[in-house]
Design a binder for these strands. Sequence first.
DNA 1: CTGAAAGCGCTTACAG
DNA 2: CTGAAAGCGCTTACAG
Lengths: 337, 337
Amino acid sequence: MKKGITLKDLAKKLNMSVSTVSKSLNNDQAISPLTKERVKELAAKWNYVANESARHFKLNKSFTIGFILPDLRDPFFVEAINGIEEVAGAEKYNIILAQSHENTCKEESIVNMMIRNRVDGLIAAVTKNTIDMTLFEKFRTVGIPVIYIVREPRNDGFNYVSINNVEGAFKATDFLIKKGHRRIAHIMGPRTMPIAMARFEGYRQALLKSKIPFDEKLVKSVDFTEKETEKAMVELMKLDPFPTAVFTFKNDITLDAIVFLKKKYKARLDCIDFTDFGNLPVFKYLEYKPVASVKEDFFEMGRQAALLLFEIINDNRQDTEKTFRGVKIPCKVIINR
Amino acid sequence: MKKGITLKDLAKKLNMSVSTVSKSLNNDQAISPLTKERVKELAAKWNYVANESARHFKLNKSFTIGFILPDLRDPFFVEAINGIEEVAGAEKYNIILAQSHENTCKEESIVNMMIRNRVDGLIAAVTKNTIDMTLFEKFRTVGIPVIYIVREPRNDGFNYVSINNVEGAFKATDFLIKKGHRRIAHIMGPRTMPIAMARFEGYRQALLKSKIPFDEKLVKSVDFTEKETEKAMVELMKLDPFPTAVFTFKNDITLDAIVFLKKKYKARLDCIDFTDFGNLPVFKYLEYKPVASVKEDFFEMGRQAALLLFEIINDNRQDTEKTFRGVKIPCKVIINR
DNA sequence: CTGAAAGCGCTTACAG
DNA sequence: CTGAAAGCGCTTACAG
């Protein structure tokens, strides 16, 4: 690209030193009002735009935070971005986004990219297959703070912001029990995902509380593809008696399960109730949908994660005796009527 | 953040000059294989990660392209990102995303941010209210190439990649005509948007071809909010005879119109056909939807825009006698059955 | 209140 | 094949 106007150009024209020009534009109080005015006037006239990359380099700060997320096609993650943006914007920070597409190799190359670009902090939602956190240990080595979001890391020693998955799953299951269901299936996420295990735990606790015996044949684990959900439903529908309610890991699974019922068990469509996590805006347009969903406030998770991150970034104390923080946002059940 | 390992650190340890270390890591052919090996070995051992911001600064290139888009909540723009990512990734470029939220003030601050950060190029989908392009002229002044995408600028002298909106609208309207409709309404986008006018033009041409008289009472302009769509539908449904088909600017408008019919004109739900632009993946789950939609290939638009952008970025010739290029991707009608 | 000077971590033309 | 040196555009501690 063409070279822009530099401080030097301004200084030469004004017969001042580069330092004075720099300080004027940064509103340094040591500079006289008149000088500031003259500098700013010329800067405006010449359309001077500071070279941020020089500034970042000099200050050894990128004024950028990274956000690694699985996929932008998931509208919930988009909400998280908006929450992060709100906080980052106020701090005058940019956000660099990167999608892992649930691929751990891609995730690794993104991690390296973030380090090469020296982001000042990172927010990460790991892939559904990320078990081993050693990749992310790199950030600790180079001193970049990281907040995990939505999907909690399985081990301790990490900052994270998530919802209370056990509680949410308990409520979603209990909702079905209160509606009179006794035979309640659960289509859970991959067992590698800590939050899938947490939701499974909430499901069990709700059954236990109501003294409904746990039946492992009613629990199926899927990887979020339509094919796997269909397979789970085939098996569940073959049971005798078949479950009259299903609590699923998230909206997409419910919708795919309903598509399956429409195709193969039209008659059961009206007698099986679903609950799940999420609350897609598109529900408004649907005839068949979960009776109730646990609302996951992704905007708030994004906001809280960013707040926590900036607390660390702006904290100039020695990073000895560092403690890690976990924030769990409460979640409530929304009836989709 | 903590300081990382630098070339100097490596050079000192290896008793070499910084230049030699730099060249080794960059695989300069002037360096002996043995030296390269020694350097790379230590770099790996010490987890050396090049400081990109120093490199960017030195090379006066950010290896970053910007993408200004209205809103990530629009899944079509997410597809465009994926198309851009495919090309940018291959070129080893990063993408910095910024949402204008259809707000021209926000758009202005994003433009300035992009210039301050010295992006090497920009892809932009302007807000629906952006009439005046002087804001974007700044990029020309500083020599940053820009490709407009999806929403074409109203004046000439800009590079853009879009679909053939007139053709698509013609096909969508003609589809309804061929299905036997004679009284076809059009809910168009804001008249400030060139592509809304283009789609309106396609609608008129289709009517003309089939010798159906144009009736301006059948055309309503909306700003994409549910409220405006409802208002447009109220007026259309009061006409006598009411239209038996509606061609709308995009999916969201159709869905809101259908919600309105469900509420107020349940009986007409099955006798009014819709066509529109877009093809939301969520259609799969819907009972009521447009009979056919013009598929807008946003992934391809993103890809083409990025290809065009890199052609300009990587072109080292003098930028005298610059010509501007417009790419219109053909679009086809998808039947939603 | 202003300026001279150092330096952030790289790359590269040039000399040897 | 290797190295010394300049310089990218800023900020800032220090001197005056």
